[in-house]
Measured scan of single mutants.
Amino acid sequence: MSIQHFRVALIPFFAAFCLPVFAHPETLVKVKDAEDQLGARVGYIELDLNSGKILESFRPEERFPMMSTFKVLLCGAVLSRVDAGQEQLGRRIHYSQNDLVEYSPVTEKHLTDGMTVRELCSAAITMSDNTAANLLLTTIGGPKELTAFLHNMGDHVTRLDRWEPELNEAIPNDERDTTMPAAMATTLRKLLTGELLTLASRQQLIDWMEADKVAGPLLRSALPAGWFIADKSGAGERGSRGIIAALGPDGKPSRIVVIYTTGSQATMDERNRQIAEIGASLIKHW
């Protein structure tokens, strides 16, 4: 067993022997301040990774656009098919120029040779490549099948209805392509620590998230040296922004954090800054 596999296998073990965790309302004060600064709703939840206990939450059962955070769930569904012998990570998928959609920095470079399922998941999570996500959605049967996968996990809230990039439209009061912070946090925890996926697939999923290259201005910008984070960000229309993450000190994750916002007129930089400040408060009061 590799060191990384050992780390993920012992996530519940280490967490069980940690000192009790206590909620700190100071972080919620910052979440509410972010709402004021952005002029928009902000949803927040913080779960203990081992027990699933909610440590703090704000608007945990209000719907927010998922945006690209759905790509972690998508690759979880792909990995479940791999575990069941219905898919192979090494299978190569070929596609054409007509398949390319807006923001496809990886797939646009491989029109000639195609990409493997493993490479597509890596591109979808680490670079948020939209064509990679659409190609992977095709392998599982489309958005409705991802929703069905989530329902089978016990998540009857999260739903995907459309493809990239239309799913980022974020129309107010439109339930399409949305989740709730509580539902997303619980589902992410199941994917990373539950028995739904094999140990190898859980490790692969967290490795992809740990290698995320496009979430630097968010929670990662607030992390002290030595902290662990595996995350996936999302951005959408109407001032929408979000991030889902597993993080913790001492090089291992111990909490799940989900943050979503929508309806702001603020710039992307300002949305990023507010999420980073929430992260800084979380870490300060850990």
Rank of each mutant, 00 (worst) to 15 (best):
G194C: 11
S201C: 07
R7W: 08
H5M: 15
A200E: 14
T107C: 09
Y103P: 07
A40S: 10
F17P: 05
S51K: 09
S281M: 11
L146N: 02
I11A: 11
A211C: 15
G239P: 01
S51Y: 08
P65Y: 03
I229K: 02
S201Q: 06
H5K: 13
K53H: 13
A133V: 02
L136E: 01
T193H: 14
R176T: 06
E277L: 12
R118L: 12
L137Q: 05
A16T: 11
L191R: 00
H110N: 08
L73N: 05
I259D: 00
R59A: 06
V78R: 00
L135F: 06
T178S: 12
H110A: 09
G154K: 07
G114C: 04
E164A: 00
P143T: 07
L47P: 00
T267N: 12
K71H: 00
P181I: 04
T179Q: 00
E61R: 13
M67V: 10
V82F: 07
D161L: 03
Q203N: 13
T116I: 06
A34R: 02
D231N: 05
T116Y: 05
A40F: 04
V72D: 00
K213P: 04
W286M: 07
S221F: 09
K252S: 13
G251A: 12
F70M: 14
T116K: 06
K53R: 14
L218G: 04
E108T: 09
G216D: 08
L79H: 01
L136H: 01
D113Q: 13
P181C: 08
L79E: 02
G39N: 13
C121A: 08
A235G: 11
H110P: 03
A200F: 09
R162H: 10
E87G: 05
D212L: 02
R41Y: 11
A230K: 00
F22M: 10
L100D: 02
E237V: 10
I140T: 06
W227E: 00
T107L: 08
G236N: 06
F58S: 09
A23T: 04
D269G: 13
T69D: 00
G239H: 04
F6A: 07
G85R: 10
D207W: 12
D155A: 01
C18W: 12
P165S: 07
Q4H: 14
G43M: 00
E195L: 04
F22L: 13
I229V: 10
I3E: 06
G239Y: 02
Q265K: 15
T158R: 00
R41H: 15
V78P: 00
L10P: 08
I11C: 13
Q265C: 09
F58D: 02
A182I: 15
L74G: 02
T107I: 05
A40V: 06
I275F: 14
V101N: 07
T187W: 04
T179S: 09
V258G: 04
V106M: 12
L196N: 15
L167T: 08
W286L: 04
I11H: 05
M184C: 06
A182Q: 13
P25C: 09
E35G: 05
P249K: 15
T147D: 09
V82K: 06
